[in-house]
Design a protein around this nucleic acid. Structure first.
Lengths: 355, 355
DNA sequence: GATCCGATTGACAGCGCTGACACTTCGTTT
DNA sequence: AAACGAAGTGTCAGCGCTGTCAATCGGATC
């Protein structure tokens, strides 16, 4: 019945290991699953046999018999650097726990969103899912997952679901620091480029900015607040609006580095000297932050740590079976400012040439 | 025996579908696997039952019984934009074939490279593996895979293995075009920044450059050829070397956009007007290519297409069982120039200020 | 009308492992 | 010294599906 296997694929079964160690297959199973109730000496013997035979348990069989899958899903919307960093971190943590990671693009615009998600989780029998923003806020995905009873961790959701954990960063506090940094360099009139409205980060970053402006009694000119959806191309537009306004700012706070890069481009096209005539800050410490000149003052996003923590939440959840512990864990990480070259103190020089 | 399942997880089995359709489970199985030898009317009936019951076959069980896994591996070395684009393309193709993709970071520097790979492929029983560069040239990985008899597709390997397919792009031809473009804009003295030596792309891009230079009887000054490993930071170094040399070039060919961006930075720091005083071209059409000013003239890499083709090769391979068809497929894609703003015709103005 | 053949369908074992539970030891308790 | 309980180990069925092979069906053949 077995299909012809390629060379070197004759799989060692648990039985063979058992035989060699002089125990039953069940005991080998116990050792593999690290269950208690195996005498230390027996365990050693089994481990040796496994080693010698170079035995690798068959995940399909383990899954079928134990009604598990050893699989965690990572659902994303848009590929990019963030995703690939995240998945790398998450996989690391998963490996320690003997789990694997399925990285799946989910098209929010697709017609059968819920259907696709359903297929994924039920065919694969995922043991947990991590939702990257903005998926972490999409009802279609969230509901499907929750109806299916799949442990889910939401990354930076705008509204954290009551019954499942989330991992957050304190973007608001970081935005405050960044704004303070600008203000302390003498900037009073500051432009702001908002991100995608469906990201929590967008609102938090703006709020942090507003916090400081208000606290210092500085006005926020609506003309200088534009929404760029975290995209470089949109950022170009926004930057133009802001810089070509009647009374342009001396600094711009962009909600991410891509948009900050856009601001840099526009400023350069307008022949502004950077950072002397215009200070710019970004957010995320994306690759582009150090690939342009001046290098961006920004906020480092500890993506891999977030990923590890998220994976860990799923892994730790396993024992509970059904329902998260009370209270539902909601770790929030502090962000760290990265001071580089794109901010300069406001001086007499920084007057825009008329246009 | 069954573990308590969460709400909504009572799984419909193949038996229930069979019952509803009034056939045996085996027939349902045939329909699921799209086997021939099922009367059209029966097939319809089964399909209806599947639909009504919202049945999702259990992959673990299918795998165990059929000695398959429905899993394809994508092994990578370094996260980044390229990876995430690639995986997105590959997953798309896989889904059409009912397969899933395991994206796995492989640490080439890690001590137990072969061991780790082995664990992955044998536990997961991957049906095929796609190797991203530079993994596609690492003997440790290649041998392990080939010994295990796993169908493998190599992306842009320096040396394509005889017995397994690879997917390539014609980097050399593209580099020729790019160089020609430069030369036709009047550039004679051109600097070159090489990529990581263990990437095929590095050598091909250089060869293409050299082809044109030789053909046109132009000298390649060794002083102006530096190796930057595809990294922005290295690119900074290289660019400095090149631009601070006694007799600096009027154009630089960087082997990827990150390094081209570095050249832009350095040039800017040296107060060179871009592109008037220095033309720069990159390669890959990475995100950064349009996030700096001037936007880079470069070569578009059809990453998703490559990914789809690679996935397809694995999928198509399935029926053959053991060994690829003769001859082993080696698709090679043409690359497309993207003309932007970083190249200017050489004119009297483009004289470097002394330093 | 009997025979034959390919097309369709079903019965059944078993993939490699784990859950439930039974059994065996062995150190304690009374 | 008998009874007891915990720890350690084994037996066995069965997870949900597919491969094998036998059975059945329908029409073409002679």
């Amino acid at each position: 019945m077995r299909k012809e296997l390629g060379p070197g694929r004759e799989s060692t079964t648990i039985e063979r290991v058992a035989e060699r160690a002089g125990v039953s297959s069940k005991t080998v199973s116990r050792v593999i699953n690290n269950e208690r109730g195996v005498r230390a000496e027996t365990r050693t013997r089994v481990l040796e046999a496994i080693e010698q035979l170079d035995y690798q348990p068959n995940l399909n069989a383990r899954g079928l018999a134990g009604d598990r899958s050893f699989l965690i899903g990572l659902f994303y919307d848009k590929p990019g650097d963030y995703l690939s960093e995240f998945q790398t971190g998450a996989v690391q943590r998963c490996r320690e726990a003997g789990l694997h990671m399925m990285v799946e693009p989910i098209d929010i615009c697709g017609p059968d969103l819920a259907r696709n998600v359903n297929t994924l989780i039920r065919q694969l029998r995922l043991e947990g899912v991590i939702l990257l923003p903005p998926l972490s806020d999409y009802a279609g995905v969230r509901d499907t997952l929750s109806k299916a009873g799949i442990p889910t961790v939401h990354i930076a959701p705008r509204r954290a679901p009551e019954d499942s954990p989330s991992v957050d960063t304190d973007d608001r506090a970081a935005a405050r620091q960044l704004t303070t940094h600008l203000v302390e360099h003498g900037h009073r009139r500051i432009g702001f480029m908002r991100g995608r409205p469906d990201h929590r980060a967008s609102e938090q970053r703006y709020l942090g900015f507003a916090d400081v402006m208000h606290a210092r009694g500085l006005a926020i000119d609506p003309q200088l607040v534009q929404t760029g959806n975290f995209e470089f191309s949109d950022g170009l537009e926004c930057a133009r609006h802001i810089l070509e306004s009647r009374d342009p700012p001396t600094a711009i706070f962009a909600s991410n580095d891509d948009m900050a890069a856009a601001a840099v481009c526009v400023a350069r096209q307008m022949s502004l000297a950077l950072p002397e005539q215009l200070s710019i800050v970004g957010f995320d410490d994306a690759p582009v932050a150090t690939m342009i000149w001046p290098q961006l003052t920004t906020v480092r996003q500890p993506v891999r740590s977030i990923a590890r923590i998220a994976a860990d939440l799923i892994i730790q959840h396993k024992p509970h079976r059904r329902g998260w512990p009370q209270p539902v864990p909601r770790p929030r990480l502090e962000l760290e400012l990265v001071l580089r070259d794109s901010v300069a103190p406001l001086s007499a020089v920084s007057v825009h040439p008329p246009h």
